[in-house]
Amino acid sequence: MTRVTETALPETLAEIRDEFLELAEPERLQLLLEYSQELPAVPPEYDGHPEMCERVAECQSPVYIVVDVDEDGIVAMHATAPAEAPTTRGFASILVQGISGLTADEVLAIPDDFPQTIGLMRAVSPLRIAGMTGMLMRAKRQVRAKRV
């Protein structure tokens, strides 16, 4: 059965979602931890400059994101999240890895409920899912503001 939200999901995010859904629930948390360890470092121009990034207020941990859109409309998402907050850091990593390299239109077409579709609703608190949703919404807003 195909859900409407899946039709607009870019391949990168669909693969990440499927990777989670193929696992039993307890193993999904381990995968999220692995993603937390794979969060790419922010580029040097943003490193140490949180004022150049946007704080994600929906996250209890200090998470900052910034999205760049180049002249060809290709998006690069960057995020910082503390190592002591592996769940939040994992969510940031999923979005950074899943969004970077997409076109602005592809990012804007990502269903707003993507965080609810990766199979972690029972494994993590609703507040944490809301944090990931906040990251996605802020990334989409920045793309809208910065696309050429």
Score class of each variant (00 low, 15 high):
117 T>P: 04
88 T>S: 13
86 P>E: 03
37 Q>L: 14
44 P>G: 09
96 V>M: 03
129 I>T: 13
70 D>V: 02
136 L>D: 11
66 V>N: 06
135 M>Q: 09
147 R>Q: 05
126 P>E: 13
28 R>C: 01
55 R>Q: 11
79 A>S: 09
136 L>S: 13
66 V>M: 03
58 E>L: 11
49 H>Y: 10
130 A>R: 15
79 A>Q: 07
17 R>V: 00
134 G>I: 09
15 E>I: 02
78 H>S: 15
28 R>F: 00
127 L>N: 13
70 D>L: 02
110 I>D: 06
80 T>P: 14
141 R>C: 00
98 G>W: 06
89 R>L: 01
35 Y>T: 12
128 R>E: 12
78 H>V: 10
143 V>N: 11
47 D>I: 08
105 D>C: 07
117 T>M: 13
89 R>P: 07
119 G>S: 05
66 V>P: 02
118 I>A: 13
33 L>D: 08
145 A>I: 08
121 M>N: 07
61 S>G: 03
38 E>A: 11
122 R>S: 05
98 G>D: 05
49 H>N: 12
19 E>Q: 07
106 E>T: 12
38 E>T: 11
78 H>P: 10
46 Y>M: 13
131 G>C: 12
146 K>R: 15
44 P>N: 12
146 K>F: 10
58 E>R: 11
64 Y>G: 08
46 Y>F: 15
39 L>P: 02
82 P>W: 06
24 A>F: 03
85 A>S: 14
72 D>W: 01
61 S>T: 07
62 P>L: 02
42 V>Q: 12
29 L>V: 08
125 S>L: 12
83 A>G: 00
76 A>E: 06
27 E>K: 10
146 K>W: 08
127 L>D: 06
133 T>N: 15
121 M>A: 05
29 L>I: 11
72 D>M: 06
26 P>W: 09
8 A>M: 09
19 E>D: 01
24 A>L: 06
100 S>D: 07
82 P>L: 08
30 Q>F: 10
117 T>L: 15
136 L>Q: 12
95 L>C: 05
24 A>H: 03
130 A>V: 13
106 E>Y: 13
119 G>Y: 01
54 E>A: 09
38 E>W: 03
97 Q>W: 04
79 A>V: 04
72 D>I: 02
129 I>Q: 08
50 P>C: 11
89 R>F: 08
65 I>T: 10
70 D>K: 02
41 A>I: 08
82 P>N: 05
4 V>S: 07
115 P>I: 09
69 V>L: 11
21 L>E: 11
18 D>E: 05
141 R>G: 02
74 I>Y: 01
18 D>I: 02
74 I>R: 04
45 E>N: 05
23 L>Y: 02
53 C>I: 09
147 R>W: 00
140 K>T: 14
130 A>P: 06
38 E>F: 01
132 M>N: 05
108 L>E: 15
39 L>R: 01
25 E>T: 03
33 L>G: 07
103 T>S: 15
20 F>W: 05
141 R>H: 05
117 T>K: 12
1 M>C: 03
147 R>I: 00
96 V>A: 04
56 V>Y: 00
49 H>P: 04
80 T>V: 15
102 L>D: 13
122 R>V: 01
70 D>E: 00
112 D>G: 15
84 E>Y: 10
46 Y>V: 12
7 T>G: 04
13 L>K: 06
58 E>N: 09
57 A>I: 13
87 T>W: 00
77 M>S: 03
79 A>F: 03
131 G>S: 10
122 R>K: 05
70 D>M: 01
83 A>F: 04
129 I>M: 14
135 M>C: 04
